[in-house]
Design a protein around this nucleic acid. Structure first.
Length: 243
DNA sequence: GCGACAG
DNA sequence: ATCTTGTCGC
C-alpha cells in the first residue's frame, strides 16, 4: 500500500536541516480529575475559546489515537496545505488513564495527543478527530487542545455528539448546519459525493466557514481529511505492531 | 425511568 | 475505539 517507514525517514532527515519551532502547550489544569471536575474545567475554559477566521494556511497538522489494551498510541503529522505532502511526523504512547465518557473525550486522549504534537513543527491549523464547539459545553477536543496549544484548530468527527441537522445535499461540498439549543455549532459536510458526511466545527481561533474550507481542502480522494487519515493509519499500525 | 452519546 | 474476511459497488 504505502511505504511510510521510508517516507518518514526521508522526512526526518529533511526536518533536521530546516526545523522550525516544535509545538508547545501550557497545561491550564490537571488531567487527573473526576468526571464532575472535568465538566467544571470545561465550563471554566469554554469562555476562552475565540471564534475567528483562519488567515495563514501553509501547513496543517492532524492527530489520532489508537488503543491496544491499556495502552494509547498517538500519531501527529504535519502536511503542506497545498499538496498534502508529508512534512513531519511524531509518535507518543502512554497508559490509558481515563475511560471513554461522551463529552469528556479530551481527558482520555488529550495527554497522549499533546505529547505527540510536541514532536512536530508548529502548524497553521490543527485538525482533530472529534468535535470543536459542537459539544454540550462548547468545548470539544479541538477547542480544548487548540486552547492549550494557543493555535487555530478545527474539529472533524465521523459522527455527531449533539445538535440537530438535516441531510446535506449529495454533492461534495454541500453541507447543512448543526444546531444545538438554538445555536449553530457546526456543519454536516459532504467531502465526497454520495458518501456519508463528516461533522466539522470550529475548535479555537477558527470559524465555521474556515472549518468547512479547511476540511474540504484536506479531503481529496477520501471522506476523512488527509491529515487525520494518515494519523489514523500510522497510530493504528503502531498500536498493533507493539503487541 | 428512557433514549442519546466524539473515540 | 476494538474484535475481524470477504465482498458489493463507484
Amino acid at each position: 500500500m504505502f511505504h511510510f517507514e521510508q517516507t518518514i525517514a526521508n522526512v526526518k532527515k529533511h526536518v533536521l536541516v530546516l526545523s522550525l519551532v516544535k509545538m508547545r502547550y501550557k497545561l491550564l489544569h490537571s488531567w487527573d480529575v473526576r468526571p464532575d471536575e472535568a465538566v467544571e474545567i470545561q465550563e471554566m475554559l469554554a469562555g476562552s475559546v475565540r471564534i475567528q477566521r483562519v488567515e495563514r494556511l501553509e501547513t496543517v497538522a492532524g492527530t489520532d489515537v489508537s488503543f491496544s489494551g491499556s495502552r494509547a498510541y498517538a500519531a501527529a503529522v504535519l502536511l503542506d496545505y497545498q499538496d498534502m505532502r508529508l512534512l513531519d511526523v511524531s509518535f507518543a504512547d502512554m497508559d490509558v488513564g481515563y475511560p471513554y465518557i461522551p463529552g469528556l473525550l479530551t481527558f482520555r486522549e488529550g495527554p497522549v495527543i499533546l505529547r505527540a504534537l510536541e514532536g512536530i513543527d508548529d502548524a497553521d491549523v490543527l485538525l482533530f478527530d472529534g468535535q470543536g464547539i459542537a459539544h454540550p459545553r462548547r468545548f470539544g477536543e479541538a477547542s480544548h487542545l487548540g486552547l492549550l496549544l494557543d493555535r487555530p484548530s478545527v474539529g472533524c468527527a465521523k459522527s455527531r455528539l449533539c445538535g440537530e441537522f438535516s441531510e446535506p445535499g449529495k454533492e461534495r461540498g454541500s453541507f447543512s448546519l448543526v444546531v444545538d439549543r438554538g445555536e449553530i455549532v457546526g456543519a454536516a459536510l459532504r467531502t465526497r459525493t454520495n458518501v456519508k458526511p463528516v461533522f466539522v466545527s470550529p475548535g479555537h481561533m477558527s470559524d465555521l466557514s474556515s472549518a468547512i474550507e479547511i476540511a474540504l481542502n484536506c479531503a481529496r480522494s477520501h471522506r476523512v481529511p488527509e491529515p487525520l487519515r494518515l494519523a489514523h493509519i500510522l497510530s493504528s499500525k503502531r498500536a498493533r505492531s507493539k503487541r
